[in-house]
Amino acid sequence: MRAASHYSWALTPDRTKRTDNARAAFQQKFLDQTKSPEYPDGDPIKAASLRKAFYAKLALKSAQSRRLARENGAA
């Protein structure tokens, strides 16, 4: 499967266009979380904050995982 994936991406002329739908859905997820009567389509400012919080949480988990791996490797 990995080889097929690499082959598929190698034959993709426009990589950005290929992932447009996924990126739009990811952004929509945050907009959906901020819907209110005032912002029926979602508040883009709050959505941006939610996205930043998502990535900050992801970075924290990554740092914790690397620290744990480093500590286990040294032991």
Rank of each mutant, 00 (worst) to 15 (best):
F26E: 14
T12L: 06
T16E: 14
K46C: 01
P37Y: 01
E71D: 14
A25G: 00
L60A: 13
R2Q: 09
K29D: 00
S8D: 09
A48L: 07
A4H: 08
Q27S: 07
P37E: 08
G73S: 09
R66H: 08
E71I: 00
R2F: 11
Q27V: 12
S62G: 07
L31M: 13
P44R: 09
A48C: 00
A47M: 04
T19E: 13
K17W: 05
A56R: 15
A4L: 14
Y39Q: 07
I45R: 10
A3I: 07
N21F: 02
P37K: 12
L11I: 06
K35I: 02
A75S: 05
A3L: 06
A25P: 02
R2Y: 04
L68E: 13
D41N: 12
E38T: 12
R66C: 01
R15F: 05
S49N: 12
Y55D: 04
Y39M: 02
L60Q: 14
F30C: 02
D20T: 13
T19I: 10
D43W: 02
A10F: 05
D43G: 04
L60Y: 04
K57H: 05
P13F: 00
R18F: 06
A47N: 03
S5A: 10
A4G: 06
D32Y: 00
D43R: 01
N21K: 15
K52Q: 14
S8L: 11
S5Y: 12
L11E: 09
D32M: 02
Q27A: 06
P40I: 02
K57N: 12
E38F: 03
A3N: 12
L58E: 11
L60W: 08
K57T: 08
L68H: 11
E38G: 03
Q28K: 15
S62I: 09
A56C: 04
N21W: 03
D32N: 15
M1D: 06
L50C: 03
